[in-house]
Amino acid sequence: MIQIRNVDFQIHGNPILHDISTSIPKGQLTALIGPNGAGKSTLLKLIARLEKLQSGSVRIDGLDLSATPTEKLALVMAVLSQHTHVSSRLRLCELVGFGRWPHHHGRPSAHDRAEITRALELFDLTALADRFLDEVSGGQAQRAFLAMTFAQATDWLLLDEPLNNLDMAHARALMRHLAGLVRDQGKSITVVVHEINYAAAWADHVIAMKDGRILAEGPPADVLTEPLLSRLYDVPVAVGTHQGRPLILHHV
């Protein structure tokens, strides 16, 4: 479980997060939703120790974020940030290989190599393994970064808008895949998603944020309701049901 206690955060004096206290359940797919500027990515970055905590505390499986060495945290959680532009000319297999670095620090074992192969297979990249990052499409590169995160073999995965650059089919496949990892391998995954129906369709737990505060949290059926979503986005929405999951309609 990730426990977040009294976290405030500001950038140049502008408050981004106000006294956030919540917990993210273990063994579930958690979706962070909310309008632009709600503080979702900031919260994720704080948990991922990409931004330094200004106040409050974060504990991940009992480890205090500010007291645990960063190398150790890399064995507990893997992070995919937004804006992953890389100027190095790397092959996909080399990029994915860096996911194993926290485990071997420069001396990869046979086990590490096997994990890399597995991650490439899992994200359907085996055929592209020897291609350079600048020779594949944006979606393929995005999958390579996901595979690298996966290769880190951590209990926790934190993904900031992983559906960027993915078309409908690949986005669906990825969400399905993440749900599968949670179900079959007991992973805990937290994603920031913009398209709310992906949260509706695949998440086990939803945290809705607005203006740096948590508006609601709980199972999708409880959070993704007409009054709450209309308040969250300041847009009237209708919520239907499709194959037993909520379906949010906001067409015109």
Binding site: A48, A74, L80, S81
Partner: peptide
Amino acid sequence: ADRFAILGLGDNVAKGLGLD
């Protein structure tokens, strides 16, 4: 070499992999 390669991937990736 490995450390420089990871640094080239960006600060966030490096931190995510536990490299300061």
